[in-house]
């Protein structure tokens, strides 16, 4: 399936800012089942976007806006071809657990086994693991499919309940959250209780009416590495496997590795963020480029998804006192 995606991000600062440096992860990944044909960034204030590929293969763009401004707008437009992932078997052989452990002992995917910032175990997580009986039995695939369904069942989707960077305990307490919470909770259970390598995926979902997750926003799910199958995507928010409707943008250990935007600037005192995401299927490859180039305000914009969720920009205050303390923290090998 060929998609056109437009991801619009707007920061409005309460006071003017300057010397802003921003890093974004918005370009869809290239992989065996996905290819990004076209990617275009429009920045306001205008800036020269440079890019690099990080050690996980994510393409990161970064740019500086030295002048005084009070609003930052990022429009990322892309055209992505996504093919259906290979069909999974109904189950795996029970020896898959042992195969997995062998690979782990050899050091494969070491990072994706470890508890990370958002997937460190808590008492509530342990309680959930007991409740859902997350243990090794049968074969990995069977257990994962059951877990995917169980998390979907146990948690309510609520766009207002948490923020993208809330600790999992918030969602665990209220049994509600957004796609990041569903994903972090499943990641933590898979790593800590099934001891399988699992990674966080941020991206987009081409929505259908019956999906649980909200349209107009970015999406998150996880991938688990299974012997013989490679990375398999699970979307616990919607209780589905990642498939042709899932567009991968970045992978990491958890959200902290791959926020869509991360920035530092001088001045200001807080900002308001609005994000909108539009994913549209393109029929026929011929007119694709033209569609991606459609004017920005074509009237079909879905309602803006407003939240303070992705408030990742931190002001680069020069508080002398705090700086003095950090100067002392510098260990210096003396």
């Amino acid at each position: 399936m060929l998609y056109s995606v437009r991801h619009t991000t707007r920061f409005q600062y309460k006071l003017p800012v300057s010397e802003a440096i921003t890093e974004i992860r918005m370009r869809p990944r290239d992989s065996e089942i996905q290819h990004c044909n076209l990617f275009r960034l429009t920045l306001r204030p205008q800036a020269n976007a440079l890019s690099f590929t990080d050690s996980l293969g994510n393409v990161v763009h970064h740019f500086s806006q030295p002048g005084v401004h009070q609003e930052l707008q990022i429009v990322a437009e892309s055209e992505v071809m996504v093919s259906a992932p290979p069909v999974l078997p109904a189950s795996l052989d029970a020896t898959a657990w042992a195969q997995n452990d062998e690979a782990a002992a050899a050091g494969d995917h070491w990072d994706m086994f470890q508890p990370s910032a958002y997937t460190t175990s808590t008492a509530r997580l342990e309680a959930l693991a007991r409740e859902l009986d997350v243990t090794r039995r049968d074969d990995p695939l069977t257990v994962l499919l059951a877990l995917n369904a169980a998390i979907h069942r146990t948690f309510a989707y609520d766009a207002t309940s948490t923020q993208v960077d809330s600790p999992i305990d918030d969602a665990l307490l209220h049994r509600r959250g957004v796609c990041q919470d569903f994903t972090h909770i499943m990641l933590a259970l898979v790593r800590n209780h099934l001891r399988l390598p699992a990674r966080y995926v941020s991206g987009y979902l081409h929505h259908r009416r019956d999906d649980t997750s909200a349209d107009g926003a970015s999406h998150a799910w996880l991938e688990v590495f299974l012997p013989g199958l490679g990375w398999v995507g699970f979307d616990p928010t919607n209780n589905i496997l990642a498939g042709e409707r899932h567009i991968q943008v970045a992978i990491g250990r958890d959200y902290a590795d791959v926020p869509p935007t991360r920035g530092v600037y001088k001045g200001g005192s807080g900002s308001e963020l609005s994000v909108s995401v539009r994913v549209r299927p393109l029929h026929g490859s011929g007119g694709a480029a033209g569609t991606a180039d459609a004017p920005l305000d074509d009237g079909s914009e879905p309602p803006v998804y407003r939240s303070t969720a992705q408030a990742l920009q931190s002001s680069y205050a020069q508080a002398q006192q705090a700086a003095a303390q950090q100067q002392q923290q510098q260990q210096q090998q003396q």
Binding site: I21, L50, A317, A322
Partner: peptide, 11 residues
């Protein structure tokens, strides 16, 4: 939270 460094230096 570093106030000693240079934003963007690593890039």
């Amino acid at each position: 939270d570093s106030m000693l460094g240079v934003p963007g230096l690593f890039s």
